[in-house]
Design a binder for these strands. Structure first.
Length: 1180
RNA sequence: GCCCGGGUGGCGGAAUUGGUAGACGCAGCAGACUCAAAAUCUGCCGUUCGCAAGGAUGUGCUGGUUCGAUUCCAGUCCCGGGCACCA
């Protein structure tokens, strides 16, 4: 009988709805089980075949658990706030709520087709005020808490205030603010108190850097920034400090780390979280700044310290010549190498160089000027060694040159030279002026580098975010004349030869010498245009010398201080001690800038690369000489603490979580500012609903669009929630909600109240949604207490590994905070976590040619490299294109050969591609505009007039035209087939490309299965006793399915079902005792067909309530095994033996075998290896 | 760059604790049924040498451990994901 899945699905859906089969109660005699998958963000593209992968996998598990007798909670909802809806709104003016609603409807429609066992009565979306009311409420709780290090948990801020009132700051071990007494505390103004408390709150305000795009007047997500410019419009993007909300997740670093041990998550997942948290043990070390900036070079005696036995390339070599004569500014070998080049340059000097040379040569300016002089590895145009001045004449300036010049300048600066540059034109046109400038510089440089003023160093830095983020950073620049670094390798301190600051480091502006000022500014500006990822990924070494020096804490040797982007401000103290011999990045940096690389490792050669292992014994390290890593580390830590140079420190890589966005489509903060103090709205007024805006463009100073709503921002009418009810703010104010810092743009206006105009980030709503499913209608709390106690933590959580860190970490944080504050009774949200891999799309590319608008006179066909490498028959192709183009443009261009073509592969929608071939006709009919680029394009065919496509596997996405819609699959093959095929593709945690072709196999399987129940066109089951064979295959299948579902190996489950059905078909089995349990086994995978047949064979309940079959081992026992017999590991023969046969018997029998003897070639047996039930190996 | 994962036939993948590599399926080839097509069924199907029997070789690459390695170890290349404001 034909399987008509469409009718079956229809009928079964009706039955499910009638009986409300997936409705779950918050109480039951059965044990509970909570199965959850990450809820989707409803994008405009709808679901593609990748989405259901996880949903089906979880659904199978949920159904399995229900068969196993659990009360299963399996809900679904929508993560509905987010950037794409807002961007769409900016483009089209449609309200995000409208598009979101539309998208959700579409998602729901698609989800309903798949046969998922959701309790839809629990559905919600995070953008619903009924939901985000509680997101806001939880935020208030977080805002009103601090982390008490004594109790090791979050507490209400009131416990901190009472500590302050009683004892001032003295009892607080994690003090983040100034020291004060109880009397002081009481004397502080409200604002002063608020400022102090803000440094403890778990949700707090601080300055942080954002991607600022002046062109768009807005802050951009990292995602929206490509190569330093905005993705939309290509405007430059720079880092800018803005006042932001943060969650103090760093306080939970240790608990988040330790909590992992209790969780049943995959090891790689835990590993990723561990690495994110990034706990490392090491030391904070203070390096004093050199009070006398005029001694940039080490004295000979200092140099000697480096001249140990180890093969090294330190100062002693670099400065080899200094003692011989002061104009030896490089080592002898470099000089030898460069001398001929310098001579050559002197002979062929440019006109400009000659002009200058004639004026400055000899002693004309009162100091000896040398030309084409070698310094380090560079040849400089002119130099006065006495005055430490270099004069360079620039020719044509291009990008690369600029960069090289910067590097060159940095090096020369580090050697104590000042560099002045003149352009060719300048010299030619205004020589007098140039000479005057040179004279002035020579004069200035006679009085050596002035040190930065004391005053500068002593001024307190303003309160900055960074201080709040990492306590240790607070001290930097606060009048301390030292640089503090964090290192995990204090044992290598004697190998430190320079220091590097992050480009954002506060100290930079205070220590940079006058002559380096311009360079540093340029460099810092350059870094501002780069993202953190770019900064880390870049192999190119960049940096800039500050002109300042720090002193080695033990040797007092001056260490040059550089700025480089490879040091990140967010990690540690934003400054490092560079140990080039022991760290690859430091090593590369030192090589690049010609800095010394003192070797501190005995018997290790560091000429080619540094030594990062921890096994060598130290040398050239004063009191650490002869010690290994462990002993040296301990001794150094002790020494640091004893001498008060530094201390032991546990550092975390994790930073506090930025919690505000300059966006519209997110939860408004339940916060307003009064006299510069952040205060919370009264809880009973929540939710603060998102007001309508006329435009979704950003506020005047880059704030979110809400900032444009003047009436809403300035709470003139004292209404917290604008209409309908007018309420008096003063009577409703919650007294525990006090104090905070000001949002800078809103500081004016005493007594006025201003709303927070930022909104919460995407992860706000998703950090606690799993709790809401327990009691989605609850109106008096974020979760009903009884429901929370019944369901507890999620037992089985599934989602993409792309969320492995962010979402999972934030959810764990919120859970822990809610637990600490006594609202829930568990402190880990997800007991078991499974990652599904991605289903990737197969993008199809067809070769395309476009005429460039500017027709050049080159008379050539231009073929870009990537095309050339993809198509190997270019000659033929080129000819073809030339012909095509000539034909097409005949008469329009006088010179046909002057056409310039650009070839590139263009994406075409997968639905028009069958295998490799593009159906060009339907493409043209259905997508007439989409593929017109600015020029005219020609799709290129091969010689058979076919449009052949190249395939590339990438993320499935609308913009890549590679989306396969599950609806189409279901319409064509049915939901059960679709479900099983998705599972059959491979292990669920693996990413794999979608290929529709394979679905036929599963479709065939289900038809075969269906036909087992029918003879002719009638459903007939036999009640006869099953044969041993039939029983065996059933029990094998039960065993395999049960085990594999628990392992989530659904692909092998499908294989086993196929094996089973193939066998039963061969046996022509239609016995009830075999097929009925099989229906239950198959139900989690194919719920429609099994539900239908279950009813058809006479059951009145739903198949989902049938208990899962159990297998009986006795049907599976084998009594013999066919052993592969290997000689020297190579299988040669198979021999069957009873499983309980004696080894000696087997050995005898094997050795007597003809084949075995043949392969033993008469050699004596060395060893006989026998593994029962596995194999035999004869070693000769 | 750093962190995590992956690499096995034309394709998706299977292989228990280190024990017969390629289960199951797709595609392909041959055949049966049919007037024909579809559907269905049967057989073949890593590469290579060979008429065959049979042999050699084969799990990204290079080594190592082992009687035996897809599996363990070291190194290396390539691909995917994440890297803190996409979700």
């Amino acid at each position: 009988m034909e399987l008509n899945f469409a009718n079956i699905e229809e009928e079964v859906k009706k039955l499910w709805a009638e009986k409300n089969i997936y409705r779950v109660e918050n109480k039951s005699d059965k044990p509970k089980y909570y199965v959850l998958e990450m809820f989707p963000y409803p994008s405009g593209a709808g679901l593609h075949v990748g989405h259901p992968l996880g949903y089906i996998a979880s659904d199978i598990f949920a159904r399995y658990k229900r068969h196993k007798g659990f009360n299963v909670l399996h809900p679904m909802g929508y993560d509905a706030f987010g950037l794409p809806a807002e961007q769409y709104a900016i483009e089209t003016g449609q309200h995000p709520a409208v598009t979101t609603e539309k998208n959700i409807a579409r998602y729901r429609e698609q989800l309903d087709k798949i046969g998922l066992s959701y309790d839809w009565s629990r559905e919600f979306k995070t953008s619903d005020p009924k939901y985000y009311k509680w997101t806001q409420w939880i935020f208030i709780q977080i805002f009103n808490s601090w982390y008490n290090p004594e109790t090791n948990r979050a507490e209400n801020i009131s416990t901190l205030i009472s500590k302050f009132e009683r004892n001032g700051s003295s009892q607080i071990s994690n003090l983040k603010s100034q020291i004060f007494s109880a009397v002081d505390w009481k004397s502080f103004s409200e604002k002063e108190q608020a400022d102090i408390l803000m440094q403890f709150r778990l949700a707090y305000l601080a300055d942080a850097e954002v991607n600022w795009c002046e062109g768009l007047g807005t802050v951009l997500a990292n995602d929206e920034v490509v190569n330093g410019v905005s993705e939309r419009g290509g405007h430059p993007v720079v880092k800018k400090k803005m006042r932001q909300w943060f969650l103090r997740i760093t306080e939970y670093a240790d608990r988040l780390l330790q909590g992992l041990e209790t969780l049943d998550w995959s090891e790689p997942m835990k590993e990723m979280q561990r690495n994110w948290i990034g706990r490392s043990e090491g030391a904070l070390i203070r390096f004093n700044l050199n009070p006398n900036q005029t001694s940039p070079q080490p004295s000979p005696s200092e140099r000697e310290k480096y001249s140990g036995t180890a093969n090294q390339k330190g100062w002693s070599q670099e400065f080899d010549g200094i003692e011989k004569a002061n104009f030896y500014t490089t080592d002898s070998s470099t000089h030898k190498a460069l001398k001929p080049i310098a001579r050559e340059l002197r002979k062929n000097d440019t006109a400009a160089e000659d002009l200058i040379w004639q004026v400055v040569r000899g002693n004309q300016l009162g100091t000896k000027i040398r030309r084409q002089h070698v310094i380090g590895k560079f040849i400089v145009d002119f130099v006065s060694i006495e005055n430490k001045l270099i004069i360079e004449i620039d020719g044509e300036i291009h990008e690369q040159q600029k960069e090289e010049d910067a590097i060159r300048t940095a090096f020369l600066n580090s050697e104590g030279f000042k560099v002045v540059r003149f352009k060719n034109e300048e010299v030619k046109n205004n020589l007098e002026n140039v000479i005057l400038k040179i004279k002035t510089e020579l004069q200035n440089n006679l009085t050596l580098n002035p040190s930065p003023s004391e005053k500068d160093l002593n001024t307190n830095s303003e309160h900055s975010a960074i201080e709040a983020l990492t306590p240790s950073q607070k001290e930097k620049g606060q009048g301390m004349r030292f640089i503090e670094v964090f290192t995990t390798r204090p044992d290598t301190l004697f190998g430190c030869s320079f220091m590097v600051l992050a480009p954002e480091h506060d100290l930079i502006s205070k220590i940079t010498t006058a002559e380096q000022q311009a360079e540093i500014e340029k460099y810092v500006q350059y870094v501002k245009s780069r993202s953190d990822v770019e900064r880390m990924a870049e192999k190119k070494i960049t940096g800039c010398f500050t002109g300042a020096f720090a002193l080695h804490p033990f040797t007092q040797k001056p260490l040059p201080i550089y700025v480089s982007e490879y040091v990140l401000n967010g990690y540690g103290t934003g400054a490092i001690m560079a140990v080039p011999s022991g760290d690859s990045r430091d090593y590369a940096f030192a090589k690049h800038f010609n800095l010394p690389i003192p070797n501190i490792f005995s018997d290790i050669n560091i000429d080619e690369k540094c030594y990062e292992e921890k096994t060598a014994v130290l040398c050239n390290s004063d009191f650490l000489n002869g010690l290994d890593y462990k002993a040296a580390t301990k001794k150094m830590l002790d020494a640091l603490e004893e001498k008060n140079i530094g201390q032991r420190k546990i550092n975390f890589r994790m930073r506090d979580a930025g919690f505000s966005r300059q966006r519209y489509w997110g939860e408004p903060f339940p916060i307003y500012y009064e006299n510069g103090i952040a205060k919370t709205l009264p809880e009973n007024e929540l939710p603060l609903t998102l007001p309508h805006v006329a435009s979704y463009s950003p506020g005047p100073e880059g704030q979110g669009p809400l900032a444009n709503l003047k009436d809403w921002v300035e709470m003139k009418d004292l209404t917290l929630n604008p209409s309908p009810s007018e309420r008096d703010l003063n009577t409703n104010l919650d007294h525990s909600t006090i104090e905070a810092q000001t949002p800078s743009p809103l500081e004016k206006g005493q007594g006025m109240r201003f709303r927070e105009t930022n909104t919460m980030p995407g992860y706000a709503g998703s950090s606690w949604y799993f709790l809401r499913y327990m009691s989605p209608q609850e109106d008096h709390a974020f979760v009903n207490e009884e429901a929370m106690k019944y369901w507890g933590a999620v037992d089985f959580y599934n989602g993409g590994s792309e969320h492995a860190v962010g979402h999972l970490l934030y959810s764990r944080l919120w859970t822990k905070v809610l637990h600490d504050l006594g609202f829930i009774n568990f402190d880990e949200p997800f007991k078991k976590m499974v990652n599904q891999g991605m289903i990737q799309g197969q993008s199809k590319f067809v070769l395309c040619a476009t005429t460039l608008n500017c027709v050049t006179t080159f008379g050539e066909i231009y073929i870009s490299n990537d095309v050339a490498s993809q198509y190997n028959n270019l000659d033929e192709l080129t000819k073809f294109v030339v012909n095509e183009v000539e034909e097409k443009y005949n008469g329009r261009f006088e010179n046909k050969a002057a056409l310039r073509m650009q070839f590139y592969p263009t994406r075409v929608p997968v639905e028009y591609v069958d295998g490799e071939k593009l159906d060009f006709v339907s493409l043209k009919l259905n997508e007439p505009i989409r593929f017109n680029s600015s020029g005219e394009s020609i799709f290129i065919t091969n010689s058979n007039n076919e449009f052949l496509c190249r395939t590339e596997v990438e993320k499935m996405s609308k913009s890549k035209y590679n989306v396969v819609n599950p609806d189409d699959m279901i319409a064509q093959y049915g939901a059960d087939t679709f479900r099983m095929y998705e599972m059959f593709l491979g292990p669920i945690e693996l990413s794999k490309p979608w290929d529709t072709k394979g679905i036929e196999g599963v479709s065939r399987f289900l038809r075969k299965f269906w036909n087992l129940f029918f003879t002719e066109d009638k459903l007939t089951l036999s009640d006869a006793e099953p044969t041993n064979e039939e029983i065996k295959i059933l029990h094998q299948t039960i065993k395999k399915i049960d085990a594999d579902i628990q392992k989530l190996a659904y692909n092998t489950c499908v294989s086993q079902f196929m094996i089973c059905v193939n066998e039963l078909q061969t046996l022509k089995c239609n016995k009830r005792s075999i097929l009925e349990p099989l229906l239950v086994l198959l139900n989690p995978f194919a719920p429609f067909i099994t539900e239908y047949l279950w009813k058809e064979i006479g059951n009145t309940n739903s198949v989902i309530d049938a208990p899962f079959p159990t297998h009986d081992e006795k049907y599976l026992i084998e009594n013999s095994f066919t052993y592969p017999i290997a000689i020297n590991g190579k299988t040669r023969v198979n021999m069957e033996f009873a499983l309980d046969a004696d080894v000696a018997v087997i050995e005898k029998s094997v050795l007597e075998n003809d084949q075995v003897q043949k392969f033993m070639e008469g050699k004596p047996m060395k060893k006989f290896i026998f593994v029962k039930g596995r194999m035999v190996n004869v070693v000769v």
